[in-house]
């Protein structure tokens, strides 16, 4: 009886796995992460080349306008067209640079996908649940994906319950609050992050 139950459970799990693998949003995120692992993280190219490759995937896969609008909050509306364009470009560069510093931390961890979940308040968006199987303990990663005319786009990545989009929004909003909403100053700071040492004081009046 116990054996029969085990077979039944295994069947259910495999059925569930097939279903999860066929969810279109899951496929989109899985393909993207596979490409990043092979072409960037495991690639033997120079760091600069890896960074370019990553930036290409990053720009293609993310809905940068939505993210830009969200992370700047009300300051997005106050910014002019040029500032918005420059902010998005700088944001991509800064984020790519930040991720590229962490490329070396990758040591072959696998990503397991568990399927997608609907978001009640936003019918065009879904969450894709996954876990990075790190050596010490798995890290829960949730991808917030939006279906657009041109296909799926990522709008947020949630790591251990921490939304990256919300983190950026809080950080930029604190900076802009302390600097009279000067979006150009924020862009300048993002461009020159590498040379700043005492960033904890930057937002202080």
């Amino acid at each position: 009886m116990k054996k029969l139950f085990t077979y039944f459970l295994a069947f259910l799990m495999s059925a569930n796995f097939c279903f999860a693998a066929q969810d279109p949003a899951v496929l989109f995120v899985k393909n993207l992460s596979d490409k990043i692992i092979t072409d960037v993280l495991q690639s033997k190219q120079e760091k600069n080349q890896k960074e370019k490759e990553f930036e290409k995937y990053f720009t293609e896969a993310l809905d940068l306008k939505s993210i830009g609008r969200f992370v700047l909050g009300r300051y997005w509306r106050q910014a002019n067209t040029n500032q918005r364009k420059e902010f998005v470009e700088t944001f991509v560069k800064a984020t790519t640079r930040s991720w590229s510093d962490r490329f070396d931390l990758y040591s072959g961890e696998k990503i397991v996908f568990y399927g997608e979940r609907k978001i009640e308040s936003s019918p065009s968006q879904v969450y894709v649940d996954s876990k990075i199987m790190a050596k010490d303990s798995p890290v829960e990663v949730i991808w917030r994906v939006k279906k657009k005319k041109e296909g799926y786009k990522i709008i947020d990545i949630v790591v251990e319950n921490v939304s990256m989009a919300l983190n950026y929004r809080n950080e930029y909003s604190a900076f802009l609050q302390a600097n009279n909403g000067d979006v150009s100053l924020l862009i300048e700071n993002l461009k020159h992050q590498k040379t700043k040492e005492k960033k904890e004081d930057v937002s202080k009046k």
Partner: peptide, 28 residues
């Protein structure tokens, strides 16, 4: 060490980044 220093270097307001990360993680 690596993750912390990378976050510190990339943030325009590290205090808020740390707070936001901690508070969201606590909600879990």
């Amino acid at each position: 060490l690596d993750l912390y220093n990378s976050m510190k270097k990339d943030s325009v307001d590290f205090y808020t980044t740390m707070r936001s990360t901690f508070q969201q993680n606590q909600k879990k």
